[in-house]
Amino acid sequence: ASTLVLADHDNKKLTASTYNTVSAAVALGGDIAVLVAGSDCKGVAEQASSLKGVAKVLHADDAVLKHQLSDSLSLLLQELQKKNKYSHIMGSTSATAKMALPRLAALLDVQPISDVLAVKSNDTFARSTYAGNAIATVKSSDAVKVATIRPTAFAAVEDSEKKALIESVACKLPTPILTWVKDELSKSDRPELASAEIVVSGGRGMKSGENFQMLYDLAGKLHAAVGASRAAVDAGMAPNDMQVGQTGKVVAPKLYIAVGISGAIQHLAGMKDSKTIVAINKDPDAPIFQVADYGIVADLFTAVPELIKALEKK
């Protein structure tokens, strides 16, 4: 195989998911190149050059790539494919890759493979369907495989002492058809939801957005990220980028603490691969207890402050 991995980054640093995507490429074997496409992103290319298993970093630096919008990014990838004839082009299930890779696939006349959970061989992959309730093993007949990788399904590769070669890619991209207007990104000092080792999530049982402060406090004690169920997001208690579930983010931390979450199928789809699950819910019949390693049937408004206190003591 010769694989091109599209790096996730914000022009300043690599996103953790890139380490997992490279891991999927390693599972294929063969040559691995990583594309860092952006603007003023030399530092990211340098960071990518130490990813273990990567032979080459392609660094495409251009103002039109600053926001990594789907039009320019797919054309760049198409150019690189023409030149280098990769057998696989992979990204993570990040918003950027989900937008750009299928668009690229149209340009290459390829049926993409979304949300890959396992690499079975060069052309065969397991992927999640029906909100994780059915795992399909699919075999692609396309000459080049275009796939998005679920980061939580692959262990991150390590950094290596040996640096890969960084090759600068000249971009001759046409005038973009998409214009960036603005970003309204959530700012938080807490770890990123998708890659945090501990996640604390709140559901409808939290009753209000103000009450989420309790979870932020708990997360502070645990150095955890904070998530929310779709019910909580729909009720306006938390922004959508905190949503864990089928239509939100898929997480698989070492410890997942579900607070006031009943455990709808669509929420379970986003967290049931967590190593250890704790559920706090006052309804003993809540479905979340069926996947929880440790459950407490209790009023969260008593249990969470107690938990914070207990962690202070430790």
Binding site: N133, I135, V291, G295, A298
Partner: peptide, 24 residues
């Protein structure tokens, strides 16, 4: 279809753990 479905399976099931009595 470009993707041949070789199999469709249920995901590994998680079994319920235990209920603990207190936060402690």
């Amino acid at each position: 279809p470009r993707l041949a479905y070789l199999s469709v399976e249920e995901p590994a099931h998680r079994t319920a753990g235990i209920k603990v009595e207190s936060v402690g």
